[in-house]
Nucleic acid binder design. Sequence first.
DNA 1: TGTTATTTGCAATACACTTGCAGTAAGGAA
DNA 2: TTCCTTACTGCAAGTGTATTGCAAATAACA
Lengths: 139, 139
Amino acid sequence: MKTKLKDEIRAAGKRVTRTRQAVLSVLEGAKYPLSPTELYGQLQAQNVAIDLVTVYRNLTTLKELGLVTQLELHQEGQFRYEIKEGREHHHHIRCKSCGRIVDLLLCPLKKLTAFIEQETRFVVGDHSLEFSGWCPKCQ
Amino acid sequence: MKTKLKDEIRAAGKRVTRTRQAVLSVLEGAKYPLSPTELYGQLQAQNVAIDLVTVYRNLTTLKELGLVTQLELHQEGQFRYEIKEGREHHHHIRCKSCGRIVDLLLCPLKKLTAFIEQETRFVVGDHSLEFSGWCPKCQ
DNA sequence: TGTTATTTGCAATACACTTGCAGTAAGGAA
DNA sequence: TTCCTTACTGCAAGTGTATTGCAAATAACA
């Protein structure tokens, strides 16, 4: 786990605990955004003693610190989390058949956001843009 | 409730029941997409005898028949439904403060979908694009 | 090493949604 | 109109994800 992350946690008045490090460490190694349950499963496989509740609480804290991004994939009905460090803003596509998740390294929404703010008089905070379909193997 | 809808339901081998008509009727009058609980509340206010489970089951059926669209707003953690009849494909923006939901009568994703299919070799089925922010009153 | 506020684990709870099943009713056939 | 089949409904119970309360544990600072 990167020293920079530890410093940011302490700078926010939070503690670098055994479980928090374990959660971040799994997220650092993840190839796609993980659900709390998946993360918990990986920790158990590594024999890390941790409660699922603690996973949830750590994810919430890390999201509040801005170290982790929370996202909802299209019609999946749960949250997923991925580490922010060193990653551009991006979106995802998920296979409706096998559940495989792939990053889309793009975001076409900057101009559109300005247009929406002008049209609706809302101030836009966030957006979610997620695709689903069928991956090459499942077509 | 429109005759066309009744015909489509019967054509699919489903029945035009008292409760199904009530559900559709509320959706026809809705100004924004409703959650199952909101829909149930409106039916109770109209003294329609119906169980929440029946609301869920009817929404599922109507979605399968293609008469109703199911959507997830940004980080809300529940589904919402709106009637499809006479409405273009569109997206939404939701106020993070008061929950107000406004339609966005646009979709910038046709070209992007083609690009994503080319890049990922997925076949794109659906997408979700939802915005959240602060409405004029809550700014 | 001691102090204290943060964090953890366990149990209980909340909430959206689903399932099983017996009884009800829509709607085509007679 | 009446009958019959099968979709549909209501009630109760069950999932699965996420949250909360509280006493015990522990990180971090002096």
